[in-house]
C-alpha cells in the first residue's frame, strides 16, 4: 500500500477511476471474446445463408434467397425434419415421464445423505463425454451385444433383440444423454413443494393420483417445462447420436446440416438450414420464456 496516509493513519482519498470505466474494463475481455467466437460467427453464418454458393476462389458472389426455399425445392427434407421432430418429441416425452418419476422418488422416498448421493449418481454421467456414452450403447444393443448375451443366458435359443441402427436406438441414446437434465429440474421444482400442501390435500380426501395430477404435477410444471426445453433444443440439433446409433436410418436435420459443412461443402445451404433450426429454437424459447423466467426466479 502507498505510504501516503490521511487522517488517523488511514489511506488518503485519491482520484479514483470513474466507475463506468472500471465496469467496462471488467466486462470487456469476456464480451470481446464472446463477440469474436459466437456473435460474429452467427452473423457471418447468417450472411452466408443468402449466398448462392460457397465463396471459393474467384467465383463471383451471388446473393439469393434460394437456400431458404430448400424445404420446397427438396421435399425429402420435409421427411427429415419430421424424423427430427419425432425423435425430439419422443426423447422429451420419455425423459419427462421417467425424469419426473425419478425426481419424485428422490424427493419423497429418500432423505439426507442417501438422497444427496443418489442425486450425484444420477447427475454424474451427464458430465461425462456424451460421445463415449453413445458409443457404449452400441455394445449393448448391437446384434450379439450385451443385451443378447444377457437374454441368452436364460433362454439360449432366443432370437436377437439387438436394435442398433434403428430410430428407437437413437431415442434410447438421446434419453440416456439428457435424462439427468429432467431429473434435476423436476427435483428442484418438487423440492420446493411444502409437505403441508400434500398433507392438506390428503386431509381433504385426495387419493395419491389426485395428489399427483392436481398438486405435484401442476406445482412442478415450471421444472417440467424447463427440463423439456433444455432437452428438446439440443436434441433437434443432434447429429452424432443419429450417426452412431442410427447408421443409415439416422438421417436427421442435424446430420443433413453437418453433411453440408463436411461432405457436400454447400455452406450456404447448411447455414440456411442451421438458421431455420435456430428460428425453431428461438420460437421454443420465446413461447416458454414466461415459464422459464418464473422458474429462474424461485
Amino acid at each position: 500500500m502507498p505510504p501516503e496516509v490521511g487522517a488517523a493513519g488511514l489511506p488518503a482519498t485519491r482520484r479514483r477511476m470513474p466507475p463506468w470505466l472500471a465496469t467496462a474494463a471488467l466486462l470487456l475481455p469476456s464480451y470481446a471474446w464472446l463477440t469474436l467466437a459466437v456473435l460474429l460467427p452467427l452473423t457471418a453464418m447468417f450472411v452466408f445463408s443468402f449466398l448462392h454458393a460457397t465463396p471459393l476462389g474467384n467465383k463471383p458472389v451471388v446473393w439469393t434467397l434460394e437456400q431458404y426455399r430448400a424445404f420446397h425445392d427438396q421435399p425429402y427434407l420435409l421427411g427429415v425434419a419430421w424424423t427430427s421432430l419425432a425423435i425430439g418429441l419422443w426423447t422429451t416425452g420419455i425423459c419427462a415421464v421417467v425424469g419426473f418419476a425419478a425426481a419424485l422418488a428422490l424427493v419423497r422416498a429418500t432423505a439426507g445423505r442417501t438422497r444427496e448421493t443418489l442425486l450425484i449418481l444420477v447427475l454424474l454421467p451427464f458430465w461425462t463425454n456424451g460421445l463415449v456414452r453413445v458409443f457404449s450403447w452400441t455394445m449393448v444393443i448391437r446384434e450379439g451385444g450385451f443385451l443378447d448375451v444377457f437374454v441368452r443366458w436364460f433362454w439360449p435359443s432366443a432370437p436377437s433383440l439387438g436394435f442398433l441402427y434403428t430410430t428407437p436406438a437413437i431415442v434410447l441414446g438421446l434419453v440416456h444423454g439428457y435424462l439427468p437434465y429432467m431429473v434435476l429440474t423436476c427435483y428442484i421444482a418438487l423440492l420446493s413443494i411444502d409437505d403441508a400442501v400434500i398433507e392438506a390435500a390428503q386431509s381433504l380426501g385426495a387419493r395419491w393420483w389426485t395428489v399427483l395430477f392436481k398438486i405435484l404435477v401442476p406445482l412442478a410444471a415450471p421444472g417440467l417445462v424447463t427440463g423439456a426445453i433444455l432437452i428438446f433444443v439440443p436434441v433437434i440439433g443432434a447429429f452424432m447420436e443419429p450417426r452412431i446409433l442410427g447408421g443409415r436410418v439416422g438421417v436427421t436435420m442435424g446430420t443433413v446440416i453437418e453433411d453440408q459443412f463436411t461432405q457436400a461443402f454447400n455452406w450456404p445451404l447448411g447455414s440456411a438450414l442451421a438458421f431455420t433450426m435456430l428460428a425453431v429454437v428461438l420460437a421454443v424459447f420465446a413461447t416458454f420464456s414466461g415459464v422459464l423466467r418464473r422458474s429462474a426466479a424461485t
Binding site: P41, P234, A238, A274
Partner: peptide, 18 residues
Amino acid sequence: PPIAIPWLITGTAMLVFF
C-alpha cells in the same frame, strides 16, 4: 447463446467465420 444454441449451429458458425 453459447449455452442455449445447439452446438451444431455454434460449431458450424465458427467454422464459417474462422
